[in-house]
């Protein structure tokens, strides 16, 4: 049982994911839970990009002396573009549900909402 060695970027991404999940588990305010979810998403995106990084290479825009051998992996970048947009879509959707809940129950606390619903 030794803690595996991972790089700085992996560490940063993983910490974001864990901090976000902590927020989702512990917090009771709905907006806070959504903010935490969005932090998790940012962490996952950072993780994907770091998986595609290759030390010492430059961005995959093939002009001015940057050939195929000098560029990082472009696929994760394309994936993350998609994931970012999906993330903001989910956030917007979730916030409008939260607004509806607030209009119905007058609170954003999940415990309170449960109690009001019975």
């Amino acid at each position: 049982m030794s803690v595996p060695h991972i790089g700085l970027y992996y560490f940063g991404a993983l910490s974001l994911v864990l901090v976000g999940i902590y927020g989702v588990l512990v917090k009771k305010n709905l907006l806070k839970i959504l903010i935490s979810l969005s932090i998790v998403e940012t962490g996952v995106n950072l993780l994907l990009i770091s998986v595609g990084y290759i030390t010492g290479r430059s961005a995959p825009i093939l002009s001015e002396g940057i050939g195929p051998k000098q560029a990082v992996d472009p696929i994760p970048q394309a994936l993350v573009l998609t994931a970012i947009v999906i993330g903001v879509a989910t956030t917007a959707m979730a916030l409008s549900v939260a607004i509806t809940l607030y209009e119905k129950y007058g609170t954003l606390n999940i415990e309170e909402i449960r109690r009001l619903r019975g």
Binding site: V40, T90, A94, V97
Partner: peptide, 14 residues
Amino acid sequence: AAEAAMKYIVLGGI
């Protein structure tokens, strides 16, 4: 409905 959707969103997001 809003509460069910919220539950779904949180679990689905994770």
